[in-house]
Amino acid sequence: MNSDYFEITGKSSGFSDGDCLLNVVLKIIDKSYFSGFTPRQKAEQLSILARKAALMSAELSGICVGISFHKNSEGMPLSQNGIWWGVSHKPEIVAGAVSHSPVGLDVEIIRPVSERLMERVSDKSERTLFKDDPVITFFKIWTSKEAVLKLLGKGLSGLSECKIHDVIANDHISVRYKERIFSVTCFVSGTYIISVVSLPDKVKLVYDC
């Protein structure tokens, strides 16, 4: 696979980051931060914090164009002056990235999941490609597929057409969506996992402490 995000029958897709490094900013939130918040207020704050992480990513990458964080009617982030952005958040963690190429990322908290959910998200042939325990395997598959679907602006309705194509070194995963193959890098840190559509040497995870 070359430095493009994906290839279509061996031809460049046009989603290439060239020699640019994708800085993905991750921030872990202390539970006390949300003390007294209603569920709606908490969701709003998580969205704000995720966008702050994206702005930090833009600064680290030397991208000075203002980001409006506009989305289309389907909730897909819209580019602005050739600048793309992506965010993801869960109750205790947020992530954001800004790039000159389309961004796809997903973050999750690692937790027990049912066998039924595992089978819904993946089939046995996909899971056998991994060397991790079943729960880590599930979240690598789930976040990898979600990152690709977010990049494409697809919802969970596209999950059935998203398949793990190959696994390299257990944290570099290629994901197939219809005829397209995407390169995804997974990072596992403690009880958190984040997957980013990028080649391993093109992405850097930065913690906002």
Rank of each mutant, 00 (worst) to 15 (best):
F130Q: 07
K31Q: 11
I28Y: 00
S47Q: 14
P39Q: 08
E59Y: 13
S101W: 05
M76K: 05
K178M: 15
V94M: 11
N81D: 13
R51P: 11
L152S: 03
S79P: 08
I29H: 01
P112Q: 06
L60A: 04
E92Q: 14
S125P: 00
I110R: 01
K204G: 00
E126Y: 05
I164R: 00
P200A: 09
D4W: 01
G10M: 06
V203R: 01
T185G: 01
P91V: 07
E7R: 08
S198H: 11
Q80E: 06
V107M: 05
G158C: 09
V167I: 11
F69I: 07
M118Y: 00
S3Q: 10
E179C: 06
H172E: 03
G66K: 13
V98I: 05
W142H: 07
I67P: 09
C209T: 13
S12Y: 10
A58T: 01
V175G: 10
V184G: 12
I141V: 10
F130G: 04
S122Y: 12
A54G: 07
L152R: 04
I8M: 12
V167Y: 06
M76F: 02
S47W: 11
S35W: 14
V196A: 04
L105G: 00
G155M: 13
S125H: 01
E92W: 07
D166P: 00
R176I: 01
L46N: 04
Y207M: 02
A54M: 12
G66L: 14
S68N: 10
V167S: 06
L117Y: 05
D201N: 13
K204L: 02
D19S: 08
K150D: 06
C162L: 15
G190A: 12
E161H: 15
W85P: 02
C186K: 01
Q80Y: 03
S16G: 05
P134G: 05
L159W: 05
L21M: 10
V206S: 10
P200E: 09
C20N: 10
V206C: 14
V25T: 09
S32Q: 13
I93W: 02
Y5G: 08
G104N: 08
S12F: 10
L117P: 04
R120L: 06
S13M: 03
I193N: 05
